[in-house]
Design a protein around this nucleic acid. Structure first.
Length: 424
RNA sequence: GGAGAGAUGGCAGAGUGGUCGAAUGCGGCGGUCUUGAAAACCGUUGUUCGGGCGACCGGACCGGGGGUUCGAAUCCCUCUCUCUCCGCCA
């Protein structure tokens, strides 16, 4: 959520920045300013009436104490009208606040100045590519066939137990999965992130805090009995650790990492996008979350990008880093880098990580602040997060790119975790 | 799941209808003293919204929501959470 202060003080700047996300916000902003001014005026009137009532009440207290009962009764009569007016103002104020928030919440975050203009994924900017050269060979098997051939991932079985998009990992496939999780966590810990294991279900407040609610309600699995949501990413519980928290400036940057399964309904997906491991309802991911001083959140973002880059490099996958254009960015993000790895049998790039700086957008909803040493004031902190990494597409690319006639070669860095060098 | 107790400022802990945003202690910050430090002493120390250039002024906040009352941290209802005991259980 954008701050009112920013909208009030830099109206034209906000409108201009939102245009990069292809949002014409002029009308909405005008409405917000109007509603905010209305809110202020109502509060002003309301406060005055409350002050009056407080004063009279005090006088009544004094009169009763000194035994002037008749005077006290007289004064009580005065409050009758006053209370009625206050009741109305209170209602008006609540209405004005709600109305304002309803509109405010529809505005996405402002894109950073480096975000390219554009409508869709085609306008994303390739920052750099890396890893081994892409191997072109039409005889390569796609990962879903390899999974069957070596009996390591069973999609049909998952379909029987739960439904489409819930695969069962078996034997070396299961161990491989677990090895990747451990590898990613260890790498994150070595890079200074503190590991946490969060709850995999969250309440409504948490869903709201990181921006999944109310707009992305349909993307999450919901338990209506207790009103809990299965997490779509560890970002939600981990970032919500800091909901309503004031951190010390000296604690920056706060760096957390967490493994979690992620649950996504993915309504409306179809075709080659959902084939095999490409898009699942349940998948594993290691997430990194950073709470940063606004002064250096962008250098933290670069560090996170470096970290993710080191992971795909160590796994020996061809990758590229994209800076997302305004039209392809998420609602809450100010700057997002996507990582894609090349899947040699499918002959396409697969997104495996998304690293973003949300600046104060999430913090404003979360009420995540820090005590500024210089001014002694509470200020909104910056939040950032990224996948490091999401497993299924990494597994898909590793299976496809590392296939040989003898089996699938396990990357060197994973062997200490798997205990085997080849899947056959 | 059943019975009981509780939720107050950074922490501990008073306060059961009126000048209480809240005693006191600890902690934090500033100062006096000291070569320096400790101790002692003095002062200061919550968040948030609105008005004002400002000094300041006003509103709200004692787990959340609602009610009673001229007036609620205090009384009533309700929800959530914590603790103790019993039951069940990985």
């Amino acid at each position: 959520m954008l701050t009112l202060k920013l909208i009030q003080e830099n109206t034209e700047f906000v409108i201009e920045r939102l245009a990069v996300k292809n949002v014409d916000a002029r009308k909405t902003i005008g409405k917000i300013i109007e509603l905010d001014n209305k809110r202020k005026s109502v509060q002003n009137q309301s406060d005055n009436k409350l002050a009056e009532l407080n004063k009279v009440s005090q006088q009544i207290g004094g009169l009763i104490k000194s035994g002037q009962k008749e005077q006290a009764e007289k004064a009580k009569q005065v409050t009758v009208n006053l209370k009625e007016e206050i009741k109305q103002f209170t209602q008006q104020l609540a209405d004005a606040e709600n109305e304002l928030k309803d509109v405010l919440i529809t505005l996405p975050n402002l894109p950073h100045s480096s975000v390219p203009k554009g409508k869709s994924a085609e306008n994303n900017e390739v920052v750099r590519t890396g890893g081994p050269a892409i191997f072109e060979n039409s005889n390569l098997l796609p990962h879903w066939e390899l999974a069957k051939k070596y009996d390591i991932i069973d999609f049909d079985l998952g379909n029987k137990i739960t439904g489409a998009g819930f695969p069962v990992y078996k034997g070396k496939g299961a161990k491989f999965q677990r090895s990747l999780i451990s590898f990613f966590l260890d790498e994150a810990i070595n890079a200074g992130f503190r590991e946490v294991i969060p709850p995999f279900m969250v309440n409504e407040d948490s869903g709201y805090g990181t921006g999944q609610l109310p707009d992305k309600e349909g993307q999450m699995y919901h338990d209506a009995t207790d009103n809990f949501y299965l997490i779509p990413t560890a970002e939600v519980p981990v970032t919500n650790i800091f909901r309503d928290v004031v951190v010390n400036e000296s604690d920056f940057p706060v760096k957390y990492t967490a493994y979690s399964p992620c649950f996504r309904r993915e309504a409306g997906s179809y075709g080659k996008d959902v084939r095999g491991l490409n898009r699942l309802h349940q998948f594993d991911k290691v997430e990194i979350v950073v709470i940063a001083n606004p002064k250096d959140s962008y250098s933290q973002l670069e560090l996170m990008v470096k970290h993710v880059e080191s992971l795909v490099t160590k796994l020996g996958l061809p990758y590229r880093i994209l800076r997302l254009c305004g039209g392809d960015m998420g609602f809450t993000s100010a700057l997002t880098y996507d990582f894609e790895v090349y899947s040699e049998a499918q002959k396409r790039w697969l997104e495996v990580s998304s690293v973003s700086n949300f600046e104060t957008f999430q913090a404003n909803r979360l009420k995540l602040r820090y005590k500024d040493d210089a001014t002694k004031k509470n200020q909104l902190a910056h939040t950032l997060n990224g996948s490091a990494l999401a497993l299924p597409r990494i597994v898909a690319a590793l299976l496809e790119n590392n296939q040989t006639s003898d089996g699938i070669i396990v990357p060197e860095v994973l062997i200490p975790y798997t205990g085997f060098k080849i899947i056959n």
